[in-house]
Design a protein around this nucleic acid. Structure first.
Length: 271
DNA sequence: CTTTTGACCTGACAGC
DNA sequence: TGCTGTCAGGTCAAAA
């Protein structure tokens, strides 16, 4: 489900309901997520107050004075705020219940997501410490992408999806940004010019911004913190549109697997 | 070091 | 109505 816009939408949706709230209980129905939820999570976290809701890459950080929850939604996860008497459904694995009777509920059919409890600095956690730059950081630009890409033989699509370079760009928005930049996703990253990287940095930012404004993309199961879908899928230009006509030249959109992921592009408009 | 592959897991859908 | 195979928003560890 979630790339940066969906995670950002989730953070913005849940933060007003849970920031400043004290955790009164935690229900763990299934601890077997991508990483097993640690045994001390419940005892350590109950009673603490959510000081801050933060996003880093596709991770959501819920900070308290006694530790931080590092949450990832994997492919199929969503986090929503419900009243604590709302019955749980299949795949509702974790409930974090607050004094104000609201419940932050993690739903994740495939269980590729995680909830990690850490008392250390979460930014130094193994999963976060080597992450690349945020696409909305002022230092993110074409020069940076150009410099990082020299000598790389992987395709440019795989390159911009590499979280050690830039975070948050997943399979949908990689195809969308490359279409908007007019760049063939199959092109070797190391042979793309600086001026094309400048254009690409700009289209990565604009497509992510546009998707956040639409509330994210709901292909199958994404819901925001209030349980509502996003609407950006209606504005996708190439993703999932194989055989449909290109919005620029009307030729059929192509699909090709790159790095084991379906990639969509127009072979005439993207060179 | 870089790149590729397999693994994790459930559900939806197409085709027989 | 099954059954089988394929595919899906991510990303990590191991193999090459």
């Amino acid at each position: 489900m979630p790339e940066l816009p969906e995670v950002e939408t989730t953070c913005k949706g849940i933060a007003p309901h849970i920031a400043g709230q004290r955790i009164s209980n935690i229900i763990l129905r299934n601890a077997n997520l991508r990483y097993r939820v640690s045994d001390n999570f419940k005892t350590d976290a109950i009673g603490s107050v959510i000081d801050k809701v933060e996003r880093r890459a596709k991770y959501i950080l819920l900070r308290t004075a006694s530790g931080t929850m590092i949450i990832h939604l994997g492919m199929s996860g969503n986090l929503r705020v419900v009243q604590n008497d709302v019955p749980y459904n299949k795949h509702d694995h974790v409930d974090i219940i607050f004094d104000n009777s609201l419940c932050l509920r993690l739903h994740d059919p495939r269980r590729f997501g995680c909830v990690i409890w850490t008392q250390e600095n979460p930014k130094q956690h193994k999963l976060l410490k080597d992450l690349g730059i945020e696409p909305f950081d002022s230092a993110f630009n074409g020069n940076l992408l150009f410099a990082c890409s020299r000598g790389k033989k992987i395709t440019i699509k795989q390159f911009i999806m590499d979280g050690r370079i830039v975070v948050g760009v997943g399979n949908i928005y990689a195809s969308e940004a490359l279409f908007l930049a007019g760049i063939d996703p199959r092109h070797p990253a190391g042979r793309v010019s600086k001026s094309r990287y400048e254009k690409l940095a700009s289209t990565i930012q604009s497509v992510l911004r546009e998707a956040i404004e639409s509330g994210g993309t709901t292909l199958r199961d994404f819901l925001n913190g209030d349980g509502k879908p996003g609407y950006f899928q209606q504005r996708l230009r190439v993703y999932g549109r194989e055989g449909e006509s290109c919005l620029i030249c009307s030729q059929p959109i192509n699909q090709q697997v790159l790095g084991q992921r379906a990639s969509y592009f127009c072979r005439y408009c993207q060179t």
